[in-house]
Amino acid sequence: RAAMNNIQQLTMILNSAADKPSETLIKYFNNCTVNPTDSILKRVENLEHIFKKKFAEAVGQGCAEIGSQRYKLGVRLYYRVMESMLKSEEERLSVQNFSQLLNDNIFHTSLLACALEVVMATYGRNASQSDGASAETDLSFPWILNVFDLKAFDFYKVIESFIKAEPSLTREMIKHLERCEHRIMESLAWQSGSPLFELIKQSKERESQSDQPEPTAT
């Protein structure tokens, strides 16, 4: 019943949401120094092909249509959360030009991945409860990171803002995202190739440039 309630709540939120950027979002896009509209729409389209292909490979071609439905819901949530995030950033920073953020490919891919993770977890939980061996269970986190070739560390960056921007998330979903965070913090962000190592290196370099030479702390 809890799983069904989560699905019901999600579809209720997203039934009224649009599959494309709202008027408000378009205004934010138009305010940018470099208008990101085309690249955002193109990215959503490109990632749709990738998502649907990987989904069908995982669950079987017979269930490919489910992948389309999940992606559609994910895109609605992505636009909805993006709008809410930009509104609070506008309030916080008193600026309307978010050109750098809105032209950042990693930001968008991470945000869309997070929206899809919420959708997949909402439905996946239901599937795994009714059928322990369900193929859908295999699509749980960090599956989405591999699909979009996304670094766990980058995905981590959107989670907290996502939770703040979407007040309708169920308690269960917040807990799920928190579990994803913990997994990233404890292991995924420390795998080879993670951007975290380069950031630590840069931070150390800045430290050694600005400070007097001091013995390195453990």
């Binding site: 995030m85 609070s88 950033e89 916080r92 920073l93 978010f98 750098q100 953020l101 950042d104 990693i106 930001f107 960056k157 959107v158 907290e160 803002s161 939770i163 703040k164 007040p167 308690r171 917040i174 807990k175 928190e178």
Partner: peptide, 21 residues
């Protein structure tokens, strides 16, 4: 939400995390 541990500091948001001005 009350159980969630927020890590961003006061006055910090998504813009800072993606190195935006």
């Amino acid at each position: 939400v009350q159980d969630y541990h927020f890590g961003l500091e006061e006055g910090e948001g998504i813009s800072e995390l993606f190195d935006c001005d």
